[in-house]
């Protein structure tokens, strides 16, 4: 199979594996799963002034899911929250040349980004409301 070098690279050496303290207010955590195959993906962002300054992930799943989340963390870093919100799974598919059977992995990564951002927002909005 002519998989792109990028995907092989992300699979063999996933970037940004790890986690942040999820109780840190600057951190947003997204936890998503793919019931088709039982994959679980956790993606976290660290935000300063609406900019994502760092990202970490941990994925239990197949190579495509790992590569998709690894790529997602690279992409969101340095982006504003709004920019990150607009990342589409199709961009991940294209970048990694995922086969049709693995497209749900890219959907998972997109969902994880969105879930992390919404977690960050809800946490900070409620904080501001209280404060």
């Amino acid at each position: 199979m002519a998989y792109s070098d990028k995907v092989i690279d992300h699979y063999n050496e996933p970037r940004n594996v790890g986690s942040f303290d999820k109780n840190d207010d600057a951190v947003g955590t997204g936890l998503v799963g793919a019931p088709e195959c039982g994959d679980v993906m956790k993606l976290q962002i660290k935000v300063e002034n609406d900019q994502i300054v760092d990202a970490k992930f941990k994925t239990f799943g197949c190579g495509s899911a790992i590569a998709s989340s690894s790529l997602a963390t690279e992409w969101v870093k340095g982006k504003s929250i709004d920019e990150a919100m607009s990342i589409q799974n199709t961009e991940i598919v294209e970048e990694l040349s995922l086969p049709p059977v693995k497209i749900h992995c890219s959907v998972l990564a997109e969902d994880a980004i969105k879930a992390a951002i919404s977690d960050y927002k809800s946490r900070n909005n409620s904080e501001t409301a209280e404060g």
């Binding site: 936890l31 799963g33 941990k58 239990f60």
Partner: peptide, 16 residues
């Protein structure tokens, strides 16, 4: 079709 019991995903992640 992606419905799961509440907190199930967190539990699966912890188990993994």
């Amino acid at each position: 079709d992606r419905v799961l019991p509440p907190t199930f995903l967190q539990e699966m992640f912890t188990l993994q």
